[in-house]
Design a protein around this nucleic acid. Structure first.
Lengths: 246, 246
DNA sequence: GATAGTATCATTGTCGGACAAACAGACAGG
DNA sequence: CCTGTCTGTTTGTCCGACAATGATACTATC
């Protein structure tokens, strides 16, 4: 007996969306190109403008098109790490990912990232990293500042790998870490200073292009977060709070 | 002089979308809940149905709502790893990520994942992993089969960590790897057998709960891919092909 | 009584047309 | 050069409409 697969009617707005998306993936439409006006698209696809608009909302939500601030025409865009990250973070939060899973994953990847950064860091990326460390050392008074400083440090390390996939992979994790950190950091005061110390050691190792030491200190660093959570009395098996959207 | 930040008029369809999204993030609307019909939403928000529909397309594209196959009503869903991954993969491809960056990232994270899997693997996850290895050994004749088998192996290892973030982090990478593999695997024939050997060793190490050996063999495994690319004559600095959408 | 057919209702997909708001560009006046 | 004014374009939103089809209840048939 032959198996029939269910035949699916794809609604027009979806066909239009995928058609335009294909053009973008395809590079026929390149970043920054303005999209034709809705009425023109409606004419070309021979559908109503409402249908076009629904398709555009899909693409907009996928960050394949956007309109520049205060302008009217839509332009083609490439979704960046930031755009992607909160979608992933949001998804993870909806799956009730726990605090434990977050730092377990950090323990998995961050040491390797630090080691790779030590191998590939350039003069510029080291300068950026140094700036991030200095900024944290300078002001980590409020929980806000401290948390932002932590994030920037991790971002600078990831950027120093010279690999563009790494920051994008890391970013959703950071979002979750930060959401959890904001709750924790006020309850575990000594943590803030240990963070600064670890940052300096990781920085030194990367400056010296020493992958092994960079890996070790990053391990310590991430373990510190874990200890912070334990000390602060947070249940590490509680779901991580949903990252706030701006 | 005080700085004024640009005041932005958010269009109605966006406000509606974020309002509904908030309800979902918020768990007021939970997975599987049917969404009210469009006309009712239009009434509640006091906007036209067209506006509601544009908002729904946004949510649909964000995988926060979907409709089951062949049904009419929309239901609330949680975006899963698969849904997210192709969005991320697509984004990375649009950024002209290179083949080199893909395997560099794999070299970064996969060994650690294998080690973690060796620590936390349960009887069930080991069984699943064993099945994946067996399946690859059984049929990797066509490029299609071989590539699919490679993916399933990595997925099974990631699942064995017991950490739900890991598979979701890994999935976009797999998409890119596979897209590149399909081109490579026919040009580097010996690769296919080495893959099977490495898989067996990683499996054995995880079965024995030996993180060190698991890490080492996974390192070898990933390096094999790298070699495969080099042997096949593919320019490792060429952009990775966009992962195909289904 | 279970199954197949039928009637009815609800809901979505798409259409056409309409209009106010506001952006873009040209143009004139100080 | 800056400012105001005008005009055409494009978007955001609305209204009303209709066919197609999923959902549901009811009926006939074996």
């Amino acid at each position: 007996m032959t198996e029939f697969e269910p035949l699916r009617f794809e609604p027009g707005y979806r066909r239009v969306a995928t058609a335009i998306a294909a053009r973008i993936l395809n590079r026929t439409l390149r970043e920054g190109d303005p999209l034709p006006p809705e009425s023109e698209l409606a004419e070309q696809f021979a559908v109503n403008r409402s249908t076009i608009r629904e398709a555009l909302r899909e693409l907009e939500s996928a960050d394949l098109v956007a309109r520049r601030r205060g302008t009217k025409r839509m332009v083609v865009t490439r979704p960046g790490a930031e755009q992607i990250a909160d979608r992933v973070g949001q998804s993870l939060a909806l799956h009730d990912v726990t605090v434990r899973e977050v730092w377990q994953t950090l323990e998995l990847i961050e040491p390797s990232i630090a080691a790779e950064a030590a191998r590939h860091a350039t003069r510029e990326s080291i300068a950026a990293l140094r700036a991030a460390v200095a900024r944290y050392a300078a002001d980590h008074g409020t929980a806000q500042q401290a948390v932002a400083g932590v994030a920037d440090f991790f971002r600078a390390v990831a950027a120093a790998t010279g690999n563009r996939i790494v920051p994008m992979t890391q970013e959703p994790l950071l979002l979750l870490l930060l959401a959890a950190l904001e709750v924790m950091i006020d309850r575990a005061v000594p943590a803030r200073d240990r963070i600064g110390v670890a940052q300096r050691h990781v920085l030194a190792a990367i400056e010296a292009h020493d992958p092994t030491v960079a890996r070790d200190w990053m391990s310590k660093h991430v373990r510190d977060f874990r200890r912070g959570f334990e000390i602060s009395g947070i249940d590490v098996d509680s779901p991580v709070p949903a990252p706030r959207r701006d």
